[in-house]
Design a protein around this nucleic acid. Structure first.
Length: 424
RNA sequence: GCGGGCGUAGCCAAGCGGUUAAGGCAGCGGCUUGUGGCGCCGCCACUCGGGGGUUCGAAUCCCCUCGCUCGCCCCA
């Protein structure tokens, strides 16, 4: 183990991958721009307390997955495990909320100390949207549409939108008590994981994958029954709005989401192509969070999508040939050999780039045949060849690689404008 | 954190206790000292993720370790 390698769960993205990432980012930027959603960038490092207060002490994320350390100033710092808390903190800190509703998006790395798995890294990346100061049910559908349409624009098929309502915080608290009482009464019949969660995170028991527990839960009180009439009406409005937008969804009463701050609308977009880590995008309403972090009571809703998981889906499309990302192909490939010729080639390449052309220069110094071969393989349409003869006459030899024939043209090195015109 | 599988060159991959570790792709060089996708030839692992052990002998068996992977957990 002498070889240097990246830390466990920290992955390098090589050029073949980065084109996919850029593809996704470009679509996201464009769609967000159309919807009037502005980008916000917050630090990767925050006070540990922000996440402890924002996400909830009882959650796994805060309890055992954070990258925390004490800095030289004795502060407890944590690499952000998710984006929402930071965005809310920044909005409160800079008084954004007093300037009306904020429609924000962010992207970047998050850190969680977990066992790596397909679609799950310790440093992973999310693109997320947070709308602060937005309360109406129509906005819930609008925010969901942002995620749904982004994925659709990227051509990702086979996705399912799952939807649930957690009710108001009062509904949820009341239901929680009801559920805990019921779970306590049936404790011996529950699996070990679920028993442990009765008091730490009882709602998550609903989503247990143990078949016996699931069978038992058929008799448990349901969240839907615990919703107040107002919450029910609100949930119906969200569903109507989604219908009107032609966004299909399935109701999933067991969808409760892991983080404490959610209320009312909760949703996930999942893919059957991803194995165990099937959630591509998850989000929901978190009306209580801003206040919890010290701001004025502010309704809010948002989502985050996992870049790695989305990339996995796009890689499947690429492998099957459905998605072809154009590699960057130079307009011109400069072939030169010999000291003076290489200098002339360098000057040519830089000058043409300054004119806006994509120019690649062969730096190998190998035989012209080799350089031409590389030009061919690189997909360049044109080659400028400069050797001793050309330097002597202050010309370059321009050849089209598209045609098989050698129909070279000699162009004065000084006649840059002519060359630019020909290549455009 | 728990359980299963795997780890041979940049990539894919054969070998599964016996002397020199197949092959393909990519790369590099030559055929072609100044001229293009093809073709042919050559080069490219003293070594099998790392360490230790068993053995006359290990890439092949055992142990530890690192990493990857699938599932659990959790979540994006």
């Amino acid at each position: 183990m002498n070889k240097l390698q990246s830390l466990r769960g920290m992955v390098d993205l090589l050029p073949q991958q980065t084109v996919l990432w850029q593809h996704i980012e470009a679509h996201a930027r464009r769609n967000f721009g159309r919807a009037g959603v502005a980008e916000i960038r917050t630090p990767l490092l925050e006070h540990t307390e922000l996440f402890a207060r924002g996400i909830g002490e009882a959650t796994d994320v805060v309890g055992k997955e954070m990258y925390s350390f004490v800095d030289r100033g004795e502060r407890s710092c944590t690499l952000r495990p998710e984006g929402t808390a930071s965005v809310v903190r920044a909005a409160i800190e800079h008084g954004l909320l007093s300037q009306g509703a904020q429609r924000l998006w962010y992207g970047g790395p998050m850190f969680r100390y977990e066992r790596p798995q397909a679609g799950r890294q310790r440093q992973f990346h999310q693109i997320g949207v947070e709308w602060l100061g937005v309360a109406d049910a129509a906005s819930d559908a609008e925010v969901i549409a942002l995620a749904w349409d982004l994925l659709a624009d990227l051509g990702v098929a086979g996705l399912a939108l799952e939807l649930n309502s957690l009710g108001s915080s009062a509904d949820r608290a009341g239901y929680r008590d009801q559920l805990v009482t019921w779970l306590e009464a049936h404790r011996p019949q529950l699996d070990a994981d679920s028993q442990a969660r009765i008091h730490t995170n009882p709602l998550r028991v609903l989503d247990s994958k143990h078949p016996e527990t699931q069978a038992l839960l058929a008799g448990a009180p349901t969240l839907a029954d615990a919703l107040s009439p107002g919450s029910r009406e609100r949930f119906a409005q969200v569903q109507e709005a989604l219908n009107a937008l032609d966004i299909p969804f399935v109701l999933n009463p067991r969808l409760v989401r892991g983080l404490d701050y959610y209320s009312h609308t909760a949703f996930e977009i999942t893919s059957s192509q991803l194995g165990a880590q099937a959630t591509v995008c998850g989000g929901g309403r978190y009306d209580g969070l801003v206040e919890q972090l010290g701001g004025a009571p502010t309704p809010a809703i948002g989502w985050a999508l996992g870049m790695e998981r989305l990339v996995l889906l796009l890689e499947q499309r690429r492998a099957s040939g459905e998605l072809a990302l154009a590699a960057t192909v130079p307009d011109l490939y400069v072939v030169s050999r010999g000291e003076a010729a290489e200098r002339a080639g360098l000057a040519l390449a830089v000058a043409l780039r300054r004119s806006g052309l994509a120019v690649e220069r062969d730096t190998s110094g190998s035989a012209f045949g080799k350089q031409l071969k590389r030009a061919q393989r690189g997909g360049a349409a044109w080659v400028a060849l400069i050797g001793e003869e050309e330097v002597a006459s202050a010309q370059l030899r321009l050849r089209s690689l598209a045609s098989q024939q050698a129909d070279d043209q000699l162009i004065p090195l000084a006649a840059l404008d002519d060359l630019v015109r020909m290549l455009q």
